[in-house]
Design a protein around this nucleic acid. Structure first.
Lengths: 231, 231
DNA sequence: GATGTTTTTTCGGGTCACCTAATACACGCG
DNA sequence: CGCGTGTATTAGGTGACCCGAAAAAACATC
């Protein structure tokens, strides 16, 4: 399997995982290739039984394609741990390097590296490492969906260079317990407070890239003081 | 620069380094490609100013090509140290993995990895790591050139899977002080003794792959039993 | 120095992954 | 419902890297 084809599989996998529309255009944009290139490759991958593609309609991974994509994500995230923990890469920089290394990694190397790192359960962005964790999937509740007085734990952020550069300035850590203090109107920022009472302002766009777990929703009927929440 | 072209440069570099004939055929054999492919690539590399090639005649690296090749060898050997020291790869197996990783390694990654490993001076086969060592070049005196009563230190071995598999069985270590006890006739094996008096039999072919330093030549005319030296 | 062998190059052709331009289709909107 | 806008596919073509067959040059050997 060529690095090229692997990237198509991984892209489809990640679009699926992030609940985004799996379209020719999305794939083309992410991989920086033209739409015809995508069509052509999808045809090839369909012929190999890795992708299911009906013209003008569905694009999805077959079971075999899913297995391959998961292996790639595993290798990618193991490398990310190495780069961040051992080589002290900035969180925003690990993705790019791992994207190249993952294709130069056979199963033996991935396993040895995994052992060397102590079988980490999550990558530096909080995503699970397939094979190392008993849980199957990441949370898909973003900070952007919370309202004032809700609290939740920051588990994972999107692996995107521009966002991560901004995120590093926020001085938040994965695992921080966050409470939403206020939400400014008209797409204004979220004001959140961390466990140690630090107040941080987060843009709505950024909040949509931050995935939360252990969400504790505020229930207005049990408490008259403040408003609004849901399940 | 594509991984492919890099491999041509590295191959020419290594042939030169090992004092072997730099011919179309040798390159083709090492890279497992056909002779026409080599000619074609040499033409392309010549156009890029990395290689000097005159038809039916000379093949050599330009200064620019030499710089590129040395960088590649540096990355290759840094990875070899990581694989052997940290991931416990067998000596015979590091080469193949490093051959792929080196092309997925930019300068930043190479530098960080180098720091992480403590700026090692030599790779697991004893070759110097360009940039980390003040000495420029490896010894090019092989065990095969020695005669009985000569002694020398095993510094480096050829990075070849088949040889290394054999070499690992010999139980020798880089840095061992070896004394040639006997050389069987008709290309027969060398009988050598290590510092701790272990006797080992080494085929002539294998001896040609073992590079020695601090050679202490036996001089029969100055002393009947055993003596002599050389720089 | 003619002759056979090996090495190198030229030639034509193949594959992979990409492109642009043009065509086909889907989908929302008046 | 038809029509424009955007999206997807087909058609045709490019560059990188590879091949086998055949011609050309170099080399060995007598």
């Amino acid at each position: 399997m060529s690095p090229n084809k692997e990237n198509y599989l991984k892209t489809i996998f990640e679009l699926q995982h992030d609940h985004q529309k799996i379209s020719n255009k999305n794939i083309a944009d992410i991989l920086n290739v033209s739409a015809p290139s995508v069509t052509e490759m999808l045809t090839a991958l369909t012929k190999e039984g890795l992708v299911f593609h009906t013209p003008y309609n569905e694009i999805s991974l077959t079971d075999a394609g899913l297995v391959r994509a998961r292996e790639l994500v595993r290798k990618h995230r193991i490398w990310e741990v190495f780069l961040a923990d051992r080589l002290h890469y900035a969180m925003a920089d690990v993705h790019q390097a791992a994207d190249i290394l993952e294709h130069a990694t056979d199963d033996k190397l991935a396993d040895r590296l995994n052992e060397f790192l102590g079988r980490p359960k999550r990558c530096p962005h909080g995503g699970i490492i397939p094979g190392n964790s008993d849980i199957e999937d990441d949370s898909d509740i973003t900070l952007a969906t919370l309202v004032p007085d809700d609290s939740a734990t920051l588990q994972r952020v999107i692996d995107n260079h521009e966002f991560l550069t901004y995120f590093e300035d926020l001085q938040l850590r994965l695992g921080d317990r966050l409470t939403v203090m206020k939400k400014e109107p008209f797409g204004g920022p979220f004001i959140v407070q961390t466990g140690d009472r630090v107040t941080v302002s987060i843009s709505e766009a950024a909040a949509g890239f931050m995935f939360m777990t252990d969400v504790h929703y505020h229930h207005p009927e049990t408490d008259g003081a403040e408003k609004g929440a849901n399940g």
